Simulated assay, not measured.
Amino acid sequence: MPDWINILLRSLFALAYLFLLAKVIGKRQIRQVTYIEYIVGITFGSIAAFIATDLEGNLVHGIIALTVFGLFPIVTEWLSIKSKRLRDFFEGRGTVLIKHGKVMEDSLKQERLTIDDLLEQLRAKNVFKVADVEFAVMEPSGEISVLLKAENQPLTAKKAGLSVAPVTEPQTVIMDGVIMDEPLATVGLSRSWLKTELTKIGVAQENVFLGQVDETGQLYLDLYDDKIQVPPPQTDKLTFAELKKCQADLELFALSTQTNTAKKQYEMMAGQLQDVIDQVKPLLTR
């Protein structure tokens, strides 16, 4: 067998085995690299290169070495789950770099960071003043987590005392011009409903790059041709406007009638409808 074919086959085998080991180790090695996983990742490449190019080397020996290094992070992870001390030993612990707006110089020296490195990481978190930071912690992964002081945190609906509608995951019902039946069924809709909506908008199914339906049944489309403007859904806003109109009509009836009984009934119904409007406003005016 020619050497180039042998190298090709050994390379494909090493690649397939590395892929299998990566699947066994799991997504964590990609998401967060610990000390052990960093060592294993470097060693994987060296051993795989040996398997692929060293034609005189024993292929089985290379596979055994890969297996040992592949199983090692699995074992250490299992031990880390069982013991907090071992977890701190294998993965390290977070280091407080800023506390109450004060930079911890000793912590910077411990992590071998300069103040420029720290400021760069803060700017990556959209923080430009150290004094605005309550806590900043360097995680074992090397990422820096930042907690702003209360007065510098973004205003949320909860802090403002506002009620907002719950948000659920939108379902992708069209992808690359193809209707996805399972997401449609998840939101309780059918192909006929979707085709009717496309007809209303005047868009052909094959021209839709992406179509999504939110929890209220609103259809959002992204077309292949970016020059075509798709009108945004107006159902929620029209419903809210219709409710407001009905409530205004009831108040008008109460003012125009001369019968006290009818006036009280109209006023009561107008008040009840106003309560309904206040409850559904977060849902219909997003």
Rank of each mutant, 00 (worst) to 15 (best):
R31N: 14
G57R: 08
K102P: 07
D249P: 07
L147S: 07
I74Y: 05
A65S: 12
R286T: 15
L119E: 07
V167H: 13
F19G: 14
I74T: 08
E105W: 12
R10D: 03
E134M: 08
S107E: 05
D54F: 09
T259P: 08
D54K: 10
S141P: 02
L119N: 11
E197W: 06
G92Q: 01
G94N: 02
F240Y: 13
K245N: 13
A49P: 06
K159V: 09
I81N: 11
E139H: 00
E242L: 12
A185S: 15
N6C: 11
K27E: 07
P233S: 02
K129H: 14
I51M: 09
D106R: 15
G62T: 05
L20Y: 07
G202C: 03
K281T: 14
S11F: 08
K200M: 10
Y38V: 07
L184K: 00
Y38N: 09
T216K: 14
V280Y: 03
G101K: 01
Y17P: 04
A49R: 07
L8M: 13
E139S: 00
V127F: 04
K237I: 15
Q279G: 10
E215K: 11
I63G: 02
G62W: 01
T285P: 05
T156M: 04
W78L: 13
E251K: 15
K281V: 10
I30S: 10
E206C: 12
V24M: 10
E120D: 12
D88G: 13
L119V: 09
V164Y: 06
T261W: 10
D176K: 15
I115H: 07
I47N: 02
V133F: 01
R286D: 12
T235Q: 15
L238S: 12
L113S: 01
H100G: 13
F90C: 04
I74A: 05
V164M: 08
I277T: 03
Q265L: 15
G70E: 01
V173F: 05
N58D: 10
E134K: 07
V24W: 04
D88R: 15
Q171M: 13
K195F: 13
K129A: 10
